[in-house]
């Protein structure tokens, strides 16, 4: 599936046309982007879209995974039509499977495993999937925030556009706690993927919560995950209270139904 490889200057296509439209052309190059979402809302899929868009745009990607083995990522990507393994053999992608402490341990080093991988393929993009695993390090919140702040600054200096995913525990409801460490304050962009309950059904929705330096679509939009990946669909026009777990048609919509 070809996506918008010709993004406006200074932008990095997300790989999802609908999301590019919401952002006015994609992420800003060199920015750090947090994709926060409930389980199963498409965080990893968005990371893979971003990787595939990098291949299209001749911007190699380093993809860091903590939980899944590369062979699982190859398989999942392949099912959506992305041949990650052959991209890796062609030097367009480099997949790393390690632990969060390895990524943090090298903060002071001149060239750690992350920098080595970035330089090896000339990466312009980085995906870290997911930050949730940093919780298992057992650090105090302020210590973790300091470490992550250092990591984000290091990545900005390397000039890579970074997408980090993070799982949020809430499935539905009005309150969403993104991270204990204030991760959302350390990044330039926050994409929220979550469920909304709509007429007895859980529907996936996407919202651009923060986009430093750019204007963006502020509406919640439906997300569909299919055989070829993610698509961003229409907004929830005519429906109110979608994030409160008690979404319903607006008065006008109900009145229109009566007429």
């Amino acid at each position: 599936m070809r996506v918008d490889a010709d993004s406006p200057k200074g932008r990095a296509s997300t790989g999802v046309q609908g999301l590019d439209r919401m952002l006015g052309g994609g992420f800003f190059q060199g920015d750090a982007v947090l994709v926060a979402g409930s389980p199963g809302t498409g965080k990893t899929t968005l990371g893979l879209h971003f990787t595939a868009a990098g291949v299209e745009a001749d911007e190699p990607t380093v993809y860091v995974t903590f939980e899944y083995l590369p062979q699982q990522i190859y398989r999942d990507a392949n099912a959506k039509g992305w041949d990650l393994k052959s991209w890796e053999e062609d030097g367009k992608v480099r997949l790393l499977c390690t632990t969060p402490d390895m990524v943090l341990a090298e903060s002071g080093a001149k060239a750690g495993i992350l920098e080595d991988a970035i330089r090896a393929v000339g990466a312009k993009r980085l995906v870290i999937d997911s930050m949730t695993h940093f919780e298992f390090l057992g650090m105090e919140n302020h210590e973790m925030r300091t470490q992550l702040s250092g990591l984000m600054n290091r990545l900005r200096l390397l000039g890579v556009t970074t997408v980090i995913t993070h799982e949020i525990a809430e499935i539905v409801g009005p309150a969403v706690r993104i991270s204990e460490w204030g991760l959302e304050f350390l990044v330039d962009t926050v994409i929220l993927l979550r469920y909304v309950e709509l007429e007895g059904e859980l529907v996936k929705a996407c919202n651009v919560l923060k986009f430093r330096g750019g204007d963006h679509d502020r509406r919640y939009r439906r997300v569909e995950l299919g055989a070829t990946g993610m698509s961003i669909e229409a907004d929830f026009a005519g429906i109110e209270d979608i994030t409160r777990g008690s979404a319903r048609r607006t008065v006008q919509e109900r009145a229109r139904g009566l007429i």
Binding site: P70, E88, T98
Partner: peptide, 16 residues
């Protein structure tokens, strides 16, 4: 061979 990107300690590798 199947997971060339794995970077692990001996202990971590044993778990995997």
């Amino acid at each position: 061979r199947n997971n060339p990107g794995v970077i692990e300690t001996l202990e971590g590798l044993a778990v995997r």
